[in-house]
Design a protein around this nucleic acid. Structure first.
Lengths: 150, 150
DNA sequence: AAAGTCTTCATACTTTCGGGTGATATTATG
DNA sequence: CATAATATCACCCGAAAGTATGAAGACTTT
């Protein structure tokens, strides 16, 4: 996960660097036109400013969007499993928790997971003790507060 | 709400415009130094590019943050009461819903609102039919999906 | 004044939940 | 191999939740 974040960060940095480099080259060519058509240097400066401001705004928006997506997707994935390990929640218990948070009854969860009603009750009972709650509504709220559930 | 959004939008636009104008003026002064110290025109172009790219990135980040904040705070405040009116949810029923979403039992809700257990059951029963659900967990999920609850 | 809404409460009944205990099979883990 | 962890299922029992129906008082609208 850390490796992935590192590589994507480097990729985006290299991409922006390349884009800036290409823009500089393009500006060098456009400078020739300035001499050919005799436009004033003030217009040239303004064009550079507007162009780079636009590119900067676009880069800022894109970068911010990437950070937002990563903070919404990547970090919960790491803390979610970590928290589940700390609390000792097993994968099957987590499945039951997910179905319960959808509003399903124990009977519906049992049919959905192809197990008996008693099995669902056992999983939920263990889950409640691990979360330190007594009711399913408390379990849902606590799981959301801890970041285990979205 | 629309008036407020319009005015803040104009304010930020004017602010960015003023900032760009001030930067242009600053660049005119810095151009004198270029002539005085004999720096090359390439360095001057690069400085303008980097400067405006930085300003653009900063503007993009700030603008995006503002949009994010507005979308998170402003819109739910209007839709919450509107949705409650459309669904016919009374204020008292909403209070019961809030307490229920905290994970409280019917008995705890009754004691918290100083009413009897049967009254809480009645409110919840009416609430369930208005939300089109059968269980409290479904009600919590639906209320959150609709934006009635945070 | 009549109709409608909101809030409150009650009774009776059925269903669901949750706790407690125990058991068995499988799979890791040491 | 033994022990621990996981997943599965069963039974019992009390508590909680949910449904249906009725009703009474306060308040607003027509």
């Amino acid at each position: 996960m850390a490796n992935n974040g590192f590589s994507t960060w480097w990729l985006s940095l290299a991409f922006y660097g390349l884009s800036l480099g290409l823009l500089m080259v393009a500006l060098q060519f456009s400078r020739l036109r300035v001499f050919l058509f005799g436009a004033s240097e003030n217009w040239y400066t303004g064009a550079i400013a507007i162009l780079f401001a636009g590119v900067g705004i676009w880069a800022g928006l894109t970068w911010n969007k990437r950070v937002r997506l990563e903070s919404k997707v990547a970090s919960p994935l790491t803390s979610r499993s970590t928290l589940m390990q700390q609390l000792g929640i097993t994968p099957r218990e987590f499945e039951v928790l997910e179905h319960m948070a959808k509003g399903l009854s124990n009977q519906e969860i049992a049919q959905s997971l192809f197990v008996s009603l008693n099995t669902v009750k056992t999983h939920l009972s263990n889950l409640f003790s691990k979360l330190g709650v007594q009711r399913r509504t408390q379990a849902i709220k606590k799981a959301k507060d801890l970041g285990i559930l979205p």
